[in-house]
Design a protein around this nucleic acid. Structure first.
Lengths: 206, 206
DNA sequence: TAATTGTTTAACAAAATTGTTAACATGGCA
DNA sequence: TGCCATGTTAACAATTTTGTTAAACAATTA
């Protein structure tokens, strides 16, 4: 069994597939293009991963996990509310800067087939609803204690997530309109970690 | 020439095509599905609109226009800054509520082929860069006059746009996670017109 | 009404994309 | 070395999707 030799090829193929699938989406991706990207014959894709769908599911599960643990990760920590927001924003922008195309890919494929959210969500054992309830309760408490202005927890959550994620989803538009190259964009996102945080804090501080 | 009779069919087909293209994107859309949606034979699609690409371009141009005039429209008006923000938010959310799937479609297709932004932008004679410069200058002036806190105009613009657009892009995710049906979601967006505005105002008011 | 023009369809053809097979290559090991 | 298992490929087959054609149909007009 030359398993040690096979592994690199599998990795190689998966990396190529990730590139193509995240750029083009499931329906836009071509097996031929993945093979070319990996520098191998198309038949090998089927040798390692039965078919396109199987391949896609493996990649989607990985990306789904990256994206949602990226989102939910920082929500769990048990620190004061404003600090938590700081770490959510920071964490989120960091993850998305490292994985270009991640957010757009996951959102698009879920929009195409919303049941994947349930399907893969359960598979990975993450429970957005518990998280949501918890967040809402935390907002209510902080409102009652006068720590923050009165605000609907759902709206606040949407605001935070929007501010963090949207710039990456619309990156090609933003880059073109603001005439930025990749590095300038990344600098802007780096600064955004603080700018976005302060924006949010100012919005909710009494 | 029975042009009067032909028009309804063209409209019928275009409406069907809009539905399918905005749901599935260019590569996911199937001519067969469009024909079925319109209740006609596939060959008719080619009779009216040479091929898939031609058809797509017509629809994309329409949607592109809807989306960007939706965005830029309210930026033009000559009212005090905070009022302008009010009308931008209101206008934006109204447009996107009326056209479900619009934002996701346009963003995705531009991400797939960013030069379409230049191509169609010029074709429609809209100049995002002038708009951007103008907005930035306005922010600077208001900062200097102490009307709003110091803030990078680009970040503020991204924040406003993000808060307005992202919930619609991620609608399937939000609906599922928050267990909302279509009407509940629309109610939430209706409330959001004010909530988002107040959030932004509080964030920038000294 | 017959001719003419435009509309619609079924059947066909072509192209693109995915999936399979059988033969060949290679590296480890009896 | 020569066999065996796995990795790799080219060629082929099947399927899906797009595009075309010729004929039927409908409506308008002369």
């Amino acid at each position: 069994m030359a398993k040690t030799d096979s592994k690199p090829s599998e990795e190689l193929i998966l990396n190529a597939a990730v590139k193509v699938f995240t750029r083009k989406g499931y329906s836009g991706a071509r097996m031929e293009e993945i093979a070319k990207e990996a520098g191998i014959n198309r038949a090998l894709l089927h040798y390692y991963f039965r078919d396109k769908e199987t391949m896609f599911n493996i990649i989607f599960e990985t990306k789904f996990k990256e994206f949602f643990t990226g989102i939910f990760g920082a929500f769990q920590s048990d620190v004061p509310f404003l600090e938590k927001i700081k770490s959510i924003v920071d964490h989120e922008i960091t993850v998305l800067t490292k994985h270009p195309g991640l957010a757009r890919f996951v959102i698009m494929e879920i929009a195409q087939q919303p049941d994947r959210l349930i399907q893969f969500g359960q598979k990975l054992g993450l429970n957005p609803r518990t998280m949501l309830k918890h967040f809402q309760k935390e907002v209510q408490q902080n409102v009652q204690q006068g720590e923050i202005r009165p605000i609907d927890g759902r709206q606040l959550l949407m605001n935070i997530i929007s501010i963090c994620i949207y710039p990456f989803v619309a990156k090609p538009i933003i880059k073109t309109m603001m005439q930025m190259d990749e590095n300038t964009f990344m600098d802007l996102m780096e600064k955004r970690k603080n700018d976005a945080y302060e924006f949010i804090i100012n919005a909710i501080r009494p």
